[in-house]
């Protein structure tokens, strides 16, 4: 029955026994070495992997779009990154929510953002909730560049500033 089954095709011959000069096995009766795979342990391993990956699946991973040339600074004592208005500094250029803004027009743009925030968060405004700003910049950026954003946010009334960092 085994000869007709599919197992015969997938069965392995012993290469050592076939190569033997004293008593070659391939001439006589064939000895079959049937290899079976233990699927239970494989399923277990796969299940553990799936559970681990599901647990580490971050739903907030898309808050920031980081350029490949941008390296965020690292820190240990960090807070959870929340979805706020993002001001990005890339190669000396300023972006507010991915829209390039000139340094002179930054305050006006932030005021506009704050105004639209107040309209969409009327209930929160009543509870004295303040909008926050997230700054995303390369770790080598000089404070001279960052200063314009800090000043503009202060002028536009953003009291909370969140610096995006990589967790150590």
């Amino acid at each position: 029955m085994l000869d007709q089954s599919i197992i015969e095709e997938s069965s392995l011959r012993s290469p050592l026994a076939e190569a033997s000069t004293l008593k070659p096995k391939d001439g006589g009766r064939k000895r079959l070495i049937v290899v079976t795979l233990m699927l239970t342990s494989l399923v277990d391993a796969f299940s553990i992997l799936v559970v681990y990956l599901l647990m580490s699946f971050a739903s907030n991973g898309e808050i920031l779009y980081i350029n490949k040339d941008t390296e965020l600074p690292t820190a240990q004592q960090t807070d959870v990154l929340e979805r706020n208005t993002i001001v990005k500094i890339e190669e000396g250029k300023l972006f507010v929510e991915n829209e390039e803004v000139q340094q002179k027009g930054l305050v006006a743009k932030l005021l506009e953002v704050r105004k639209s925030w107040a309209q969409t968060h009327k209930e929160e405004t009543a509870q004295e909730s303040e909008p926050a700003l997230t700054i995303q910049a390369d770790r080598r950026t000089k404070y001279e560049v960052l200063n314009s954003v800090v000043l503009a946010s202060s002028h536009a009334g953003f009291s909370d500033i969140h610096f995006a960092v990589l967790q150590k």
């Binding site: 699946f57 807070d79 959870v80 009291s159 500033i161 960092v165």
Partner: peptide, 19 residues
């Protein structure tokens, strides 16, 4: 899950306006 996994953890350093 491997393709969509986020391997870097981004956090934030929150500050109040100093002056």
């Amino acid at each position: 899950l491997l393709l969509t996994a986020v391997w870097i953890q981004i956090g934030s350093m929150n500050v109040k306006q100093a002056v």
